[in-house]
Write a protein that binds this DNA or RNA. Sequence first.
DNA 1: TTAGTCGCTCTGTTTTTCTTAGCGGCTCTG
DNA 2: CAGAGCCGCTAAGAAAAACAGAGCGACTAA
Lengths: 113, 113
Amino acid sequence: MAADDLQVHQCDAAITLAFSILGKRWNGMIVAVLGSGPLSFVALRRAVTGISDAVLSDRLSELADAGLVTRSVDPGPPVAVAYALTASGEELQPVLQELGRWALENMAHIAHR
Amino acid sequence: MAADDLQVHQCDAAITLAFSILGKRWNGMIVAVLGSGPLSFVALRRAVTGISDAVLSDRLSELADAGLVTRSVDPGPPVAVAYALTASGEELQPVLQELGRWALENMAHIAHR
DNA sequence: TTAGTCGCTCTGTTTTTCTTAGCGGCTCTG
DNA sequence: CAGAGCCGCTAAGAAAAACAGAGCGACTAA
């Protein structure tokens, strides 16, 4: 009977979709650091403090599959691989920036483990 | 020598902070559904399709610790618990909405596993 | 030659997440 | 009153993800 039970609240499909990518550890940070320009594998590993090679490799594949980043190989001879954002990735940037602002204003005090 | 190596790219601390919460599975969705008003434990579980009791319980504690949601008990007699957003949680709403818009425009085509 | 960087992958361990089951308090039905 | 069901959890074990660390092929710089 409770009226609020008759109203079926369901999680927005768009949000669910967004968090199927961003809701995984590291993905948000990877996209955020790529926001300031293409980076090599090693540069990414350095930028995203704490991530391991294996996981970074995994995440980059996922992000590539999802169409957020591209992997381009320049066979120098010293073969160099560069990861960069796609248009989709770029469009995510302003949202990430606001997220950053929010965190500064609302989470700065949180003692992080 | 390489100029791009001298420039130390490091992941923005604010983004890292934000994703220490939002980068965990379910958290974003929980905050998003609470955006449309306080909900009971069971209502939340129904709204966030796929989450289990144990994990929802865990996540709610985390979100409460982080100051994003509150847990208020009304000892009816039929004891009723309501979870709601704090001011911090509310401020996250607009960002989540933009994230939803972004997902619609950029991820709708992704075949989701 | 030796040492070092880059871009990974493989192995095995630890952490996280998930599934399943159950419990006490309450209400609703017969 | 005796089930049966909903609410709000928690405990225990299994499955999945993340982790550290070693190693490897191709290359370069000393």
